[in-house]
């Protein structure tokens, strides 16, 4: 009898189940099979350290796997390798100052994009209307530029260098800008929402980018016939990833 009890006890000890860190979970819409329950995790950071340490313990199969064009980055810590889609406009209030006839005024803002998706991104732009006085419609808007040779519009850039050419336009320089902006004297008009025009591309790339930066420079030059006063409009910058 004692031997039988001892054998049973020994058997139980030797065949103790190994912990399985997998859980099946259900909801109305999803079933998760072999979900991973961690035995420990957290972010560790010293008081004075600029760096932190992310820890996840007990994962089933962490690691990087690839074969035949497929890549799997398995593991919770890989979440830090994801490049989110982000968009920054450095200045939202762009002062053009007092406007004097045939004395161009400029203002600029910088655009920054990070895009981790495989198909890159676009930045589109439009204006709500032309630069407008508080006394509109009694006072005419400052029109869009057509550039020095009347060869630019919202889609095509042209040279705008002469002080006798009037209007309002945009120049782009930096990463991923259209090739039409061949230099800092090349300007385009802006797509106009009030006229029913759709937004037009300012920056684009078909590749992943950790940081693409470009500068948008706005220029206005009024004629001597333009009524005195303050003129204002809104410019909307839209950042969209590729599909």
């Amino acid at each position: 009898m004692k031997r039988i009890i001892a054998s049973i006890f020994l058997f139980i000890l030797l065949t103790k189940p190994v912990a399985v860190w997998a859980v099946n979970m259900y909801s109305e819409h999803y079933t998760i099979q072999w979900g991973n329950m961690n035995i420990g995790s957290g972010n560790l950071q010293g008081e004075d350290d600029p760096y932190g340490l992310g820890v996840t313990m007990g994962e089933l199969t962490p690691g990087y796997f690839s074969k035949n064009g497929y890549v799997v980055r398995s593991g919770f810590q890989y979440i830090h390798s994801i490049i989110p889609f982000s968009f920054t406009i450095t200045d939202l209030e762009l002062e053009l100052g007092n406007l004097y006839p045939e004395t161009p005024s400029t203002a600029f803002t910088d655009l920054k994009v990070s895009a981790g998706g495989a198909n890159g991104y676009q930045v589109l732009v439009y204006q709500d209307h032309d630069l407008r006085s508080f006394f509109y419609p009694s006072v005419e808007d400052i029109p869009k530029t057509v550039c020095d040779n009347s060869d630019c519009d919202k889609d095509t850039a042209g040279v705008w260098d002469q002080d006798t050419t009037h209007g309002f336009g945009i120049n782009m320089s930096g990463d991923d800008v259209p090739v039409g902006f061949a230099g800092d004297t090349y300007y385009r008009a802006l797509a106009d929402k009030e006229e029913g025009e759709g937004p037009v591309e300012l920056m684009s790339s078909e590749n992943v980018t950790r940081l693409s930066e470009a500068r948008a420079t706005f220029k206005v030059n009024v004629s001597s016939l333009q009524a005195a006063g303050d003129y204002e409009n809104s410019i909307m910058f839209i950042a969209i990833p590729g599909y």
């Binding site: 889609f85 982000s86 968009f87 406009i89 200045d91 939202l92 209030e93 762009l94 002062e95 053009l96 100052g97 007092n98 406007l99 005024s105 203002a107 803002t109 630069l131 706005f218 206005v220 303050d230 003129y231 204002e232 409009n233 809104s234 410019i235 909307m236 910058f237 839209i238 950042a239 969209i240 990833p241």
Partner: peptide, 11 residues
């Protein structure tokens, strides 16, 4: 003064 109000959108 004369100027531009910038606005942004992300999609």
């Amino acid at each position: 003064t004369s100027g531009i109000v910038g606005m942004g959108a992300i999609g």
